[in-house]
Design a protein around this nucleic acid. Structure first.
Length: 634
RNA sequence: GCCAAUAUAGCUCAGUCGGUAGAGCAGCAGUUUCGUAAACUGCAGGUCAAGGGUUCGAUUCCCUUUAUUGGCUCCA
């Protein structure tokens, strides 16, 4: 058979497997090989290749090979747990980004000490280097096999496989698991691994099901790589916004208000800068700004559908004898603002923004720093338009969001979320709305994944996800197309024909929530905010008190020029003052000593440790102004 | 909300096999006037998360509650 390799074609005997082919190419490759990609499909190294094919030998550098190795590691984990707790029932154990997990149903929850034992047992299994052998069974036999092993979850999984599915198993030593594969050839390939945590997880992800015990771990081909990975995680934790928020005195959440964050003076500077920027770009994009009340009557929420579909997440209050709710979303307010007057088609589209403070009762276990809180400010806007304006408006919003994320240098991914179970409106409305969003994304040529059933209760949405320092993804921007609320509130505009028509509504946010966005921002920049956002932009440091007068006048000039500058006249050594400014991640330090006083210059140091030397203040000011005005993220 | 872990000074963490606690940093007070990431000395700082139980005695052991962390679920 003719095998096409990445650097040319070669003839090999029919039925030869990828591992042996690798061996003929180089012994090093054979040793490093974990899996193969045959005609684009990831397969086991030991699967015979029957015909002319394109072949890639995959080593750990390849993401698919990482998954194969980690999947095998999850089997090793399951084998070890079964050995130590024979009564444990196996659920599922896939590879995930950066690692793997396996779910078990056990009578007693796992403990951290137990993990140590499991790791030891896994070492033994890896050392034995058992081959992983694949075999298939017909459906009935597969079920009988797992029934006999007393693995009810596996039986359920097999029952749910499509009729024509090939049901395969992998056997290593005395352990066999239902698995589609592929795997590495033998357990010895799992050279370096670590079990990282224990967690509860619902069977099949539904809180209606039993909670199983999940063990998370990760695996690499060498101890060095594992150590490097663990060191990277430790490093990433230093960027955690909860930690930086406290260290840099920006914000925090206190026990007295779980999920209700505090913002301190330095944090407010960042927040206000973000809001100023937001107003600026929205003004340019043709938006007006409004503010609607935080508390509104119960009847409004009943009409909007929130009472039926969102009540569990809402806070309520009583005023005199009336029932009121604290708003969990801004849309009903935005709708009342639209509805206050007769609208003509000539006014459409209307774009009305609101930095709206909303409160939502999130589950206590879901709270996470500023990322998930119980009160937050959405940089919301509601657009009302005629149906034929939908695509252009969606594109306009997309451009706005893309522009902001790109300006900050944030990579993001896009998801399209469709109709959830608990929703309002007719099938037709949902169909039209979903097609509208999809059409706009396709027009723009945007890559996206579809998230079935994850839309808002009133409409489908396009979600923008950003990543935190540990690679966890958080939804920030969203564009939601809504045909339902206009119906529920009987919104109209007068068309050119003089008749009343129903407008279409778009709900959208750019930052998502100002709080979450600040968290992402903090982690992304590791607390070293770009100059335009930095709470303190310049710190003026004196070397001796002979420089006090000049330093004070420098600070005054900075202040007059609109910069946020602080003065450090303390009787401390310059090295100490620099260190403190450095740790506060202040972008620029102006060092002033006898020399500078004499020359009338400032000696500029950046937080990156560069010393720019003595410069005339006027020159430095125009340089900094340029950096602020362009919102440079250097 | 569910599973698990954790909670000691402003922060990071020791410690007590049950006899009411300690370090570094930060803070404060002195001394030091010094050239780009840590001067020196001293002082002060804690209901050991909260409530209950066991005990002669609980910060330590047990229970409950609260909060936090990592997941699950949910979501901006």
């Amino acid at each position: 058979m003719l095998i096409t390799l990445k650097d040319g074609q070669r003839e090999f005997p029919d039925g030869m497997n990828a591992l042996d082919i690798a061996g003929q190419l180089s012994q090093d490759l054979k040793k490093a090989a974990l899996a193969a990609r045959v005609d684009g499909e990831v397969t086991s190294l030991v699967a015979p290749i029957a015909k002319d094919s394109a072949l890639e030998i995959l080593t750990f550098a390849d993401d698919d090979a990482k998954r194969v190795l980690r999947h095998t590691a999850s089997h090793v984990l399951a084998q070890a747990v079964k050995k130590l707790v024979p009564g444990a029932k196996l659920a599922i154990g896939p590879a995930i980004d950066n690692g793997f997990y396996y779910d078990f149903d056990v009578a007693e929850p796992f403990t951290p000490e137990f993990l140590k034992e499991v790791e030891k047992e896994m070492q033994r299994i890896v050392k034995k280097n058992d081959r992983l052998e694949r075999f298939e069974l017909p459906r009935a036999e597969a079920i009988a096999f797992m029934q006999e092993k007393n693995e009810p979850y596996k039986v359920e999984l097999i029952n749910d496989l499509p009729e024509d599915a090939i049901i395969s198993f992998y056997k290593q030593g005395d352990f066999t698991d239902l698995c589609a594969g592929p795997h590495v050839p033998s357990t010895g390939k799992v050279k370096a691994f670590k079990l990282t945590s224990i967690a509860g997880a619902y069977w099949r992800g539904s809180e209606k099901n039993k909670m199983l015990q999940r063990i998370y771990g990760t695996a690499f081909v060498s101890q060095e790589e594992l150590d490097a990975y663990l060191a990277r995680i430790e490093e990433a934790k230093k960027r955690d916004h909860r930690r930086l928020g406290r260290e840099l005195d920006l914000f925090d959440v206190q026990d007295e208000g779980p999920g209700f964050p505090f913002f301190y003076p330095k944090g407010m500077v960042i927040r206000n800068q973000l809001e100023n920027y937001w107003r600026e770009i929205h003004h340019k994009a043709g938006y007006d700004e409004i503010k609607t009340p935080i508390i509104l009557s119960r009847s409004l929420w009943e009409r909007s559908g929130h009472w039926d579909h969102y009540r569990d997440n809402m806070y309520f209050t009583k005023i005199d004898d009336g029932d009121y709710a604290v708003k969990p979303m801004n849309c009903p307010g935005g709708i009342l603002a639209y509805r206050r007057t007769m609208r003509s088609y000539r006014e459409l589209p209307t774009r009305c923004g609101e930095l709206g403070l909303v409160h939502r009762h999130e589950l206590s276990g879901a709270l996470h720093g500023l990322m998930r809180v119980r009160c937050f400010t959405q940089d919301d806007a509601h657009l009302f338009m005629t149906p034929d304006q939908i695509r252009d408006e969606i594109k306009g919003v997309y451009a706005l969001i893309n522009g902001v994320y790109t300006m900050f240098g944030f990579p993001y991914h896009v998801e399209l979320s469709t109709r959830p179970e608990n929703s309002v409106g007719t099938d037709e409305m949902w169909e039209v709305a979903t097609r509208g969003l999809q059409g706009a994304l396709d027009d723009l040529g945007v890559e996206y994944t579809v998230n079935e059933g994850d839309g808002a209760f009133y409409g489908p949405k396009i979600d923008f996800h950003l990543e935190d320092s540990l690679g966890r993804s958080w939804q920030c921007g969203t564009i939601q197309l809504d045909l339902n609320m206009p119906e529920l509130f009987d919104l109209t505009y007068t068309g050119p024909d003089g008749e009343k028509h129903r407008p279409v509504m778009i709900h959208r946010v750019v930052y998502g929530s100002v709080e979450r966005f600040m968290a992402i921002l903090t982690e992304h920049f590791g607390g070293a905010f770009p100059l335009w956002l930095a709470p303190v932009q310049v710190k003026v440091l004196t070397i001796t008190d002979r420089a006090d007068a000049f330093a004070t006048s420098v600070q005054k000039q900075l202040d007059d020029a609109g910069f946020r500058a602080e003065l450090d006249l303390r009787n401390e050594k310059i090295g100490f003052k620099v260190r403190e400014a450095q740790m506060a991640k202040i972008p620029y330090m102006f060092v002033i000593g006898d020399k500078e006083v004499e020359d009338g210059m400032v000696n500029v140091r950046t937080r990156k440790g560069e010393t720019l030397g003595s410069l005339p203040l006027a020159d430095v000011l125009s340089m900094l102004k340029e950096e602020v005005d362009t919102k440079s993220i250097k």
